[in-house]
């Protein structure tokens, strides 16, 4: 019985596995350029890191209530979650281009759900470079900061990484859904995809009210890294965003995915119904 179920499950994932495996093979085929790309994504991560280091070093002790090492904990959590999401979901953000080139129509001719096909149509292994850098920063920050290690801290850390990843993935899907409407203005979605990434690395205490609303709740970026990190560090959090809200990261992730799936469904309907 269990065998039959496993067999059915393996048959179910076979299409996705076949496509992804081919993407992995293709990317590893060009070793020299793959290594250059790995290095390149790490450099991008490094410049993002430089911003945090420069700003918090220029500060007079603390900035927005955090010192440099505390800020690096927020950065490491956010950066790792984002980079992993970018690796698996980043190409969903180029949907407008894929609509223009007609590759989306090809997906309609295959017997799997569209979004599942699109997500598994590619993987950017080169982003491992950026993830690796994020892991280093995160480990250093966890060691240097005063974290009260125990089951609670481990659970917080795991929850933060999983929910942060889910929220960033949801943002990519929301962007994809909206790009069905924004074929010539798809940069609009950069505002919350990349703006959201940027926001997630900041202490929420420095946000102006409009940003608190947008990136605290509409796109719940504060739940990716800042709030869980404040719980880990025993810091109070920000006005409107107290640290204890960090425990609600799974709810924030569920909310982000609700928005994402609604945007996706609206986009697909628009494409089938109104687009041309």
């Amino acid at each position: 019985m269990g065998d039959g179920l496993a067999g059915r499950a393996s048959e179910l994932v076979r299409p996705y596995r076949a496509v992804l495996a081919s993407r992995v093979r293709a990317q590893r085929a060009y070793r020299a350029s793959f290594r250059a790309d790995l290095f390149g994504t790490a450099v991008v991560g490094l410049t993002e890191l430089a911003e945090v280091v420069v700003l918090f070093s220029a500060a007079n002790g603390t900035l927005g209530g955090l010192d440099l090492m505390q800020a690096l904990l927020v950065f490491g959590l956010a950066e790792l979650a984002f980079s992993n999401a970018d690796m698996l979901f980043g190409h969903v953000d180029s949907l407008a281009r894929q609509v223009r080139s007609g590759t989306v129509d090809i997906l309609y001719l295959r017997p799997q759900p569209l979004l599942a096909q699109l997500v598994t149509s590619d993987i950017s292994l080169r982003r491992v470079g950026r993830s690796a850098l994020a892991v280093v920063v995160l480990v250093v920050a966890l060691v240097v900061n005063d974290v009260d290690w125990g089951p609670r801290a481990v659970a917080l850390l795991a929850m933060s990484l999983v929910c942060g990843f889910a929220i960033f993935c949801a943002n990519f899907v929301t962007a994809g859904g909206l790009q069905f409407f924004l074929l010539n203005a798809q940069e609009v979605t950069n505002a919350f995809v990349y703006g959201g990434r940027h926001a997630s690395t900041q202490p929420a205490t420095v946000w102006v009210r409009s940003i608190t609303v947008i990136f605290g709740f509409v796109f719940p970026m504060a739940f990716c890294a800042y709030l869980p990190a404040m719980l880990l560090l025993g810091e109070p959090g920000a006005e409107w965003l107290p640290a204890w809200l960090g425990w609600y990261a799974p709810a924030a992730a569920a909310w982000a995915w609700t928005v994402a799936l609604l945007a996706w469904r609206a986009g697909v309907r628009h494409y089938q119904g109104g687009g041309g």
């Binding site: 048959e11 076979r14 299409p15 596995r17 076949a18 496509v19 081919s22 295959r110 017997p111 799997q112």
Partner: peptide, 12 residues
């Protein structure tokens, strides 16, 4: 050949 293999998987 690989494209055919993937399509075969897609169509189970």
């Amino acid at each position: 050949r690989e494209s055919f293999g993937i399509l075969a998987a897609i169509h189970s």
